[in-house]
């Protein structure tokens, strides 16, 4: 009985891991899959194989995949807000989530790996010191998107936002030169 439950669980985990959009989640699901299938090997009385699967599948290959993802260059997106604690207009909050979702979807459609970092630091500080690919700064209902001039994705993002309706939110895209503000 227990074997069948774990066998079905392996199939479910395998399907989840190939159908997720983010690679980082897929790696974690693969590690889980390895753990579950190693327990199934144990139930079928093959402890030797179970040890090898548990070590190689969930420890070594997970770390290798994570390092490979880091080398694959993840796009870093910083999000910061002008008055973080005072925002309580519902429509602005909903729209903000919508915009972040749109940007994430934009990168996922182009098979890139977005990584959004929410921060409460001042945007000028981030502009100067952090190593970012895109910086989204919100002041009330105005959005400022900072990106690099040489980044050809920025034009695509602008076109993407022009085509879609975003209600009463203003979106400004600002292009920085390489190393104009940024020291990192």
């Amino acid at each position: 009985m227990l074997e069948k439950v774990f066998l079905i669980l392996t199939v479910v985990l395998a399907i989840i891991s190939i159908s997720t959009t983010k690679l980082r989640r897929a790696v974690i699901y693969l590690g889980l899959f390895s753990l579950v299938i190693s327990f199934t090997y144990l139930l079928y009385s093959a402890p030797d194989v179970a040890i090898a699967e548990a070590i190689i599948g969930s420890a070594l290959s997970t770390i290798l995949y994570l390092v490979a993802l880091k080398k694959f260059q993840v796009f870093t997106i910083y999000y910061t807000n002008y008055d973080y604690n005072e925002i309580n207009y519902d429509h602005v909050t909903v729209r903000r989530g919508q915009i972040l979702k749109d940007i994430e979807k934009f990168y996922v459609d182009r098979e890139m790996e977005p990584q959004i970092i929410y921060t409460t630091e001042n945007f000028k500080h981030i502009l100067k010191t952090k190593n970012y690919d895109l910086l989204i700064y919100q002041k009330h209902s105005d959005f400022y998107i900072y990106g690099f001039e040489k980044d050809y994705q920025l034009d695509a993002i602008e076109g993407y936002f022009m085509n879609e309706d975003h209600g009463n939110l203003d979106i400004n895209i600002i292009r920085c030169k390489e190393g104009e503000y940024n020291d990192a």
Binding site: P47, D48, I51, A52, I55, L60
Partner: peptide, 12 residues
């Protein structure tokens, strides 16, 4: 159960 290969992988 176990052996050289599995133990070596744990050490690695």
């Amino acid at each position: 159960p176990g052996g050289g290969f599995q133990g070596g992988a744990v050490l690695a």
